Simulated scan of single mutants.
Amino acid sequence: MKTNQLAVAPQNDAVNETASLDQVFFALSDPVRRAILERLDGQPMLVSQLAEPFNISLQAVSRHIQVLVRAGLIAQERTGRISRCSLTIGPIYSAAVWINRYSKYWQEQFDTLAGALDGIEKHKAAKRGPAKRDPRS
Results as ranks from 00 to 15, higher is better:
Arg101Lys: 15
Ser57Asn: 06
Ile74His: 05
Asp111Val: 15
Thr79Ser: 14
Glu121Gln: 13
Lys127Arg: 14
Tyr105Asn: 09
Ala114Tyr: 07
Gln76Leu: 07
Arg70Phe: 10
Thr88Ala: 08
Asn100Leu: 05
Thr88Ser: 10
Tyr105Gly: 05
Gln66Cys: 05
Asp134Ile: 14
Trp98Asp: 13
Ala60Asn: 03
Pro91Ile: 04
Ser62Gln: 05
Arg101Glu: 15
Leu73Arg: 00
Leu87Trp: 10
Gln76Ala: 06
Ile99Thr: 07
Ala71Lys: 01
Lys122His: 09
Gly115Phe: 05
Ala75Met: 10
Arg81Ile: 06
Arg78Ala: 13
Ile89Trp: 08
Cys85Lys: 01
Arg136Asp: 07
Trp106Lys: 00
Lys124Tyr: 07
Asp111Tyr: 15
Ile65Thr: 01
Trp98Phe: 13
Ala71Pro: 02
Gln107Phe: 10
Gly90Asn: 07
Ala95Lys: 05
Thr79Glu: 11
Tyr93Ala: 11
Ala95Tyr: 07
Glu108Pro: 03
Ala131Ile: 10
Gly90Lys: 06
Gln59Cys: 07
Arg81Glu: 15
Ala75Val: 14
Ala125Tyr: 00
Pro91Cys: 04
Ala60Met: 02
Ala126Gly: 06
Asn100Thr: 06
Ala71Glu: 01
Ser86Tyr: 01
Arg63Glu: 02
Phe110Gly: 09
Ala71Asp: 01
Arg84Lys: 12
Phe110His: 08
Leu87His: 03
Ser94Ile: 07
Lys124Ile: 04
Gln66Val: 06
Thr79His: 14
Asp111Phe: 15
Asp134Lys: 13
His64Asp: 12
Ala114Trp: 03
Ala75Phe: 11
His64Asn: 12
Tyr93Lys: 04
Thr112Leu: 15
Ala125Leu: 05
Leu58Gln: 10
Ile120Gln: 02
Asp111Glu: 13
Lys124Arg: 10
Pro135Tyr: 06
Gly90Asp: 09
Tyr102His: 08
Ala75Pro: 05
Gln59Asn: 14
Ile92Leu: 15
His123Asn: 11
Asp111Lys: 14
Ala125Cys: 00
Ile92Trp: 00
Ser103Glu: 09
Gly72Lys: 02
Arg81Trp: 12
Ala114Phe: 10
Glu108Ser: 14
Glu121Thr: 12
Ser86Thr: 12
Ala71Tyr: 01
Lys104Cys: 07
Ser86Phe: 05
Ala114Asp: 13
Arg101Leu: 15
Ile65Gln: 01
Ser103Lys: 08
Gln59Ile: 12
Arg136Tyr: 08
Leu113His: 01
Ile74Ala: 03
Gly119Met: 03
Arg70His: 09
